[in-house]
């Protein structure tokens, strides 16, 4: 080993240690793309992709609340609930702490269409009150956390519900809702920053690999936690679950 390569490996070791010390301190916020991270083109692109879903959701909410103004309150509270839920710290299987996305539970409780709007607003509050995420990257974050996440969770839940396997359905809805959010974020980062050799696919492998360390255990934790919540709600909160059906859209309660 000559002097140059020794110095290089020393530098690499120092860099890596620094990386782990600082990076591991807060893995929790990793899944929102930070402000200014995406180039202009991609920031605009993801806004354009997310906007139709959001507008569609808002219009259906406007309809529901016109029929029953009280539901405005319920929606506002459901949104605040989702925010507080996503600000809780949950223990991850590996020992670190992280925030749940809450998209799985939200989609099952409030319906995926409602969750698209509420999830996007939650993201606004996360960037305003906690400085996580940002405004230019809101489109990209909303697409992964408020659109893909809830719809996947909802689809999975419905699939297993029709087979009468509620618990597996809830677990997979929450775990996959979290997991898919992270996959989509990795894809978004890979598209914006393709690798020099191997292009988007190689870049996706790298981003997904890095975030998998924190996100896979977290997805499992969120799934387990959501089962506990679901059991409790089934046992003690049947009337409340009935109330929530009124904002799911398919069963609008006329009052």
């Amino acid at each position: 080993m000559n002097k140059k390569s020794r110095r290089l490996s020393l530098l690499a070791m120092a860099g890596l240690s620094l990386y782990w010390v600082i990076g591991a301190a807060r893995p929790a916020q990793a899944m929102h793309i930070m402000e200014g991270f995406l180039p202009v083109g991609w920031a605009v692109f993801w806004w354009m992709v997310a906007l139709p879903f959001f507008v569609w959701g808002v219009r259906s909410l406007a309809q529901i609340t016109q029929q029953n103004p009280n539901l405005k309150l319920l929606l506002g509270l459901a949104g605040a609930f989702s925010f507080v839920l996503s600000a809780l710290k949950i223990p991850s299987v590996t020992g670190s702490c992280s925030h749940p996305t809450g998209t799985g539970l939200g989609a099952v409780l409030f319906g995926p269409g409602v969750m698209t709007v509420l999830g996007s607003l939650v993201l606004v509050f996360q960037s305003v009150l906690l400085a996580h995420g940002g405004i230019t990257t809101l489109g990209a974050n909303a697409f992964s956390m408020a659109i893909v996440g809830p719809w996947v969770a909802w689809g999975v839940y419905r699939l297993f519900e029709s087979r009468q396997q509620h618990k597996i359905g809830i677990f997979l809805a929450a775990a996959l809702g979290n997991f898919v959010t992270y996959l989509v974020t990795s894809i978004q980062l890979a598209l914006a920053f393709p690798a020099a050799t191997g292009g988007v696919m190689a870049s996706f492998g790298k981003f997904a690999g890095i975030f998998a360390l924190t996100q896979v255990p977290l997805a499992i934790s969120e799934g387990l936690l959501t089962i506990l919540v679901w059991n409790w709600l089934q046992a003690y909160a049947q009337p409340e679950l009935q109330t929530l059906k009124s904002i799911k859209g398919q069963e609008v309660v006329q009052s």
Partner: peptide, 13 residues
């Protein structure tokens, strides 16, 4: 945590 989340939903409603 499970109790907190379920209680929170109950309190929300």
């Amino acid at each position: 945590l499970g109790i907190i989340i379920s209680q929170l939903l109950w309190r929300t409603l």
